[in-house]
Design a protein around this nucleic acid. Sequence first.
DNA 1: GAGTTTGTTGCAAACGTTTGCAGTCTCATC
DNA 2: GATGAGACTGCAAACGTTTGCAACAAACTC
Lengths: 327, 327
Amino acid sequence: MAVTLKDVARIGGVHVSTVSRAFSAPHLVNPATRERVLALARDLGYRPNRAARALSTRRTGNLGVVVADIANPFFPPLVKAAQERARERDHHVFIADTDEQADVEEEAVRSLAGQVDGLVLVSPRAPEQRIRELAAQVPLVIVNRRLRGLPCVLMDVGRGVGGAVALLAGLGHRDIALVSGPAASWTGRSAARAAASAAREHGPRVHRVGPYPPTEEGGAAAFGAVAAVGATAVLAHNDLVALGLLAAARDRGVPVPGRLSVVGVDDTPAARHTRPALTTVAMPTGDAGRAAVDLLLGGAGAGTVTLGTRLVERGSTGPAPSRPAQA
Amino acid sequence: MAVTLKDVARIGGVHVSTVSRAFSAPHLVNPATRERVLALARDLGYRPNRAARALSTRRTGNLGVVVADIANPFFPPLVKAAQERARERDHHVFIADTDEQADVEEEAVRSLAGQVDGLVLVSPRAPEQRIRELAAQVPLVIVNRRLRGLPCVLMDVGRGVGGAVALLAGLGHRDIALVSGPAASWTGRSAARAAASAAREHGPRVHRVGPYPPTEEGGAAAFGAVAAVGATAVLAHNDLVALGLLAAARDRGVPVPGRLSVVGVDDTPAARHTRPALTTVAMPTGDAGRAAVDLLLGGAGAGTVTLGTRLVERGSTGPAPSRPAQA
DNA sequence: GAGTTTGTTGCAAACGTTTGCAGTCTCATC
DNA sequence: GATGAGACTGCAAACGTTTGCAACAAACTC
């Protein structure tokens, strides 16, 4: 059905290898022949068969992106940017959604391994040792988790979180709750570290509560604990948790930011639309996607790229309530 | 590097064709040999090379999903469901983001064609004639657009929109604005048809305004026209447009739903989080993704699947304001 | 017990490319 | 005018599978 090298060769009166070279080693064929062949190929609508090419070159021209949950608004901008960059570099992109399950993740990597030149693992859930085993099968770039010796793209949530603590301190908050997510989360750990260090610098106390699931339900569930530690501001593990906290506050008649300031992480679209709009730490997800693809295709080795984050101030943060004790 | 059929055959003391058959035509090999070979293959970690298999069978085990913009919250649930279903059926999924450009879309289809068993085109932008040409190259399933003779998956926005008109009529609204999106949109056209027909049945007038871009900015821009036609309720082309209308209403001090009721289409996450929460028509995007994959792999031919939609009532709709003329 | 079926296996070609090698031709060089 | 170099092209093997065909043995059929 499809036009092959052989067809072009036959019609053009040359050998298949000449046609092949016209595409992949142009300097090895007579300019006149090359033009003739290329023109003919164009007219016939010839497209190289990538599977066949892969067989002989062991390079597929494909990439894969493995994410925990595409429906989570954090991922699509990353996938989009990665796909776009891959296209610029003439590669196609497989997508695999693991549904947050480590074993599905591993199986996805193994089954994709033979069909790609490399994989981008975003926030992988599998244990470190497993990931290292997988990295021996197929080139890997890890996003959002640090693994020594493997190429990683990290988003330094620390900067943004530190900024948030500074902002809150400036607004007079003395007690900040930090709602943590899954213990395995690299982002969560570095956020906690950054919060602690910024707190030392600026004065307020940071009360860690949790872990809670990184969902709205988790946020709602965390509200009680946040109130219990006497916090006037809360740093949520991510935007979803922050939204859950906002909903819980609304339900209980606690005004935001009047009585409680809330800060999220991720800057998902919902952060802009909820009321009050959510102050949050924006992650450079698009940059991360592009950087991951460049790392994979650039063959730059094990380099680690660290990208900055920034605080986006919206309506969910405000001056600390004057406390009765102070009045 | 990777283990091949040949390796398994050599170590197992049988011919490659026997190993091949142990996998793809088990009934043709002696049960004892088969078990032995399969066990050996497992131990060696053998994985069939899909590219090589594709070369000889002309079936790749891959699918592609082509979307206009993955970052648009409408698409990820569809992609997720499609990917999941494809995995169940042992297929991998390519993703292509066309950035809303018809020519990128076409190029994506052409360049993916050789590497997949079929493609799912979601809300394709290319002209009908082009799509038909592409369908001759590679099996296509179209989602969200009707093309006679091609397998399509449609989400019958009509049901939901009709429900919205009925709801509004029941709340006493007599003048409903319909903010339309791109003229080429099949969804938009059927929404308009359904609104008109429901209006005839339930009484209110429908005033069509637009077209406006299907974005928040578009919604904000449409506000003036909506007010100008004297509408007390508005059906937006999609949730983004509805959010833009909500923002514009807020800016102008028009209370929602007190003075204006707003209905969106898509039920994106932001619809739940904005205040007032948005009444909207929920699309069965997950079902659509699964149906598209089933259509592609089931070889069911040109069947068209139509899925229902339902109205999700939230806070942005309420009783029509009592008008001075009536008082 | 000759002929036929059935079950199991091996052989080899084919799928569409790439690429090392060798052949041919042209042209400059001494 | 032989020699060598360089440019171009063809040949054929290789990549890892699948699959039609043939070979063979064992088990039936009458």
